[in-house]
Design a protein around this nucleic acid. Sequence first.
DNA 1: CGGAATATTCAGTAAATGACGAATATAATG
DNA 2: CATTATATTCGTCATTTACTGAATATTCCG
Lengths: 176, 176
Amino acid sequence: MGTTDETTEARETVIEAIERSAEIYGLKRSYGRLYGILFFEPEPLSLDGLVDRSGYAKSTVSNAMGTLERFHMVYRRSIPGEGKRAYFEAETDLWYVFQQFLQQEIRREIKTMTRALEDAEELLEASDADRAERDLERVRRLKRVYDQSAVVVDLLSQRSLSQLQSLVRRGDNNGS
Amino acid sequence: MGTTDETTEARETVIEAIERSAEIYGLKRSYGRLYGILFFEPEPLSLDGLVDRSGYAKSTVSNAMGTLERFHMVYRRSIPGEGKRAYFEAETDLWYVFQQFLQQEIRREIKTMTRALEDAEELLEASDADRAERDLERVRRLKRVYDQSAVVVDLLSQRSLSQLQSLVRRGDNNGS
DNA sequence: CGGAATATTCAGTAAATGACGAATATAATG
DNA sequence: CATTATATTCGTCATTTACTGAATATTCCG
């Protein structure tokens, strides 16, 4: 009898896809795999459990759990009477994960850029150099895009997927 | 008299912010800088022009233009009577850039994941292993998220920012 | 508060990446 | 179709990254 049954194969298929996606969204492949393992695990797993399942070193798994937690992709639980040991569980609602990402990382990016644009605007308004006016126009246009994008980020991060679905359907006719 | 006037300083402020953002969105900092330079340039720049302005090697700039073009962040133009020389211009509408990114990269990611999930689903439906049912449930739930996300991706990639603004405003009352 | 169990940090290393300059390829024009 | 100007590819080097195993720190419990 072979070493992989159908469920193992099925899980591996999905885990590999998650690995690739993790890479696309800027996470290490190994973190994707660890998330994938947790995603299918019926019970929360300890660090050592994850080491067993994945083959990664404990330090790797520990770091992975740290950043996956930061991105709301896993939860860490402690069980009273079990000493320091922690158990990890995957957040399976990736739309929620994405919303948290928008609210934290993207919002910060928008904020940083907005600040830079406002600083530049101020400098350029005070300048009478030849290029100032042209530069100012571009800065303002970029700022407008960022302002509007912030609204869209709010839209996405506050609505469930099904709410967005109905928004699409209702807005369909008057869209263009 | 100093070497930087106000407009140079203002531009540098924004270019540095673009560098940081480029990094966040998975582009090299150097590519962010080159885009920033083009963003402020009044006229399209040649490769050599960009080399002058940036200080990067020509090969670096050439590669950067290749990928920035791929992401619809710069346009390449040739001028008749100027031999092989190409001129580069920044796309300044970053919302458009983002929409193209959604349509190309994100759509592909969704497609790949969907395919993996469907393959896994098929395998699990045929299996009678203990874990099959539980795994199947998770696979199906993840697939639903991806299906719905595809709709949202379509929404975003087909609407202008101002159309989305009004969607928000109109949908505000019945949202939650 | 001491000791045992667990988690995190750190220093080292192998592999991947980013940028360069030289070598090669490509395109336009006479 | 040869020449010349330009762009791209390739091999390299230095830097950074991903992972490891050992050292350190933290937490819980008696």
